Simulated assay, not measured.
Amino acid sequence: MVAEAVTKKLYDAATMGDVASFETLVQQDPFLVDQVSFARSRNLLHIAAANGHVEIAGKLFSIAPEMCWWVDDQGMNPVHVAAMKGHLDILKVLLEHDLSPAMERLHRGQTVLHLCVKHHQLRALRFLVERLGDLARAKDDDGETLLHLAVRYNQVEMVQYLQENKTIEKLTENSMGKTALDILRERSQHTSTYSETEKVLLRLTEPFIFNEFREVTDMTMVVAGLIATMAFQAAVSPPGGVWQEDSSTHSAGKAVMASSHPDLYKQFSRANTTAFVSSLLVILLVAFRAPTSAPVFVIIIWYAALVSMASIGVSYGITFIMTNPVETVTVGLIATILVLVFMGISLLVGAYSHILQLHSAWKSTKQHQEDQTFAHRIFRWFDQIN
């Protein structure tokens, strides 16, 4: 049994961060640290983690790492306490060798990440999401994700971070069939953060191509690189080849097409140059990691990719005309086909986005109606017929 006086000294040292007193007590009896407990069933590591004393927490962890698993009367181990208080340095110490204590669930199935959201600890949340991976997708016993909880606790910055993060589940429903946007719309729309939070959440229903574009940057680089290579090769070896020697009408190395079909060659050069430059723009933005969470950059990359593909298509069409004896194929016909194809793609994307928005609005209205009491609906019906 540890003497009450020694217990108090240990508690004071852990609470105040008195490293010298703590080391003296531990030198006298190294087994003291895992024999004492305090109010709310907390151990010394809980106390150090709660008060942000990194050095003492590190010494305790090195002496008795099993203290990380000790839970208090709220079911929280020292990792949970450090996360709740936002003590990032202590989290780094406690999770340096083993992430398992951070995986332990709390009351009603909540995780340490849910705890960060509830206590407004964005820095701790960012750190833990990077370290814990798939745990960021976990739901509690009510089916609520981190995004649901961030909306409930009116955490705009956290909603922004979660919306941008690729690991987090976003469009999922809780056990009541509600998304984060549904939860937001149930609240008063007169709060100062309502419109900002709604704007962030509505980005989740953007045209699917903008959301998917963030996931396919590697493929985008490959496609843009291929188009740039094709355009460069077409410039070096244009349709019809190049003159092999000088003459009175042309110079060696110049395109034969420039002399035989000058108007067609101008169109070919413009289309080929456009394809090359626009594909380089895509490569530049993706390679230097433009902030694709911002819609403007997504739109620039997306339309630059469309322009490069359309231009290389025109370039191919002109090459086809030059090398094919069929006279019915014209640049105008090829351009018309390309315009129709890309207009069709744009219409499909726009229609898909509109359908998503309509579905979201319908679902929110339906949920609101279902939440009304039966008597309230009867009174509304009575008012309408009168």
Rank of each mutant, 00 (worst) to 15 (best):
K8C: 07
K9R: 08
L10M: 04
E23Q: 15
Q28A: 13
L32P: 10
V33D: 06
Q35D: 06
A39R: 13
A39E: 12
L45M: 12
L45T: 11
A49L: 03
G52D: 03
V54Y: 04
E55L: 05
K59D: 04
G86C: 05
D89K: 07
L91V: 09
L99T: 12
M103N: 08
R108M: 06
H114L: 04
K118S: 12
H120N: 13
Q121Y: 02
L125F: 08
L132A: 06
N154H: 14
V156D: 09
E164N: 09
K166Q: 15
E169R: 08
L171R: 13
T172G: 14
N174F: 03
M176E: 14
G177N: 04
H190A: 15
S195K: 11
E196C: 04
K199A: 10
L204D: 12
V222H: 03
I227Q: 00
Q233F: 02
P238S: 01
G241H: 03
S248G: 05
A252D: 05
S260N: 10
H261Q: 11
H261I: 02
P262G: 10
Q267G: 14
A271R: 01
L280K: 10
V282C: 06
V286M: 08
A287E: 07
R289G: 15
R289Y: 11
A290S: 09
V296L: 04
V298Y: 00
I299D: 13
W302C: 07
A304H: 01
A305C: 11
A305R: 02
L306N: 11
V307I: 06
S308Y: 00
Y316A: 12
Y316S: 08
F320P: 12
I321A: 11
M322Y: 15
P325C: 05
T328C: 09
V331L: 03
G332K: 03
I337N: 04
L348Q: 08
A351E: 11
Y352M: 10
Y352K: 05
L356F: 09
L356K: 15
Q357T: 06
S364A: 05
T365F: 06
R377N: 13
I385S: 04
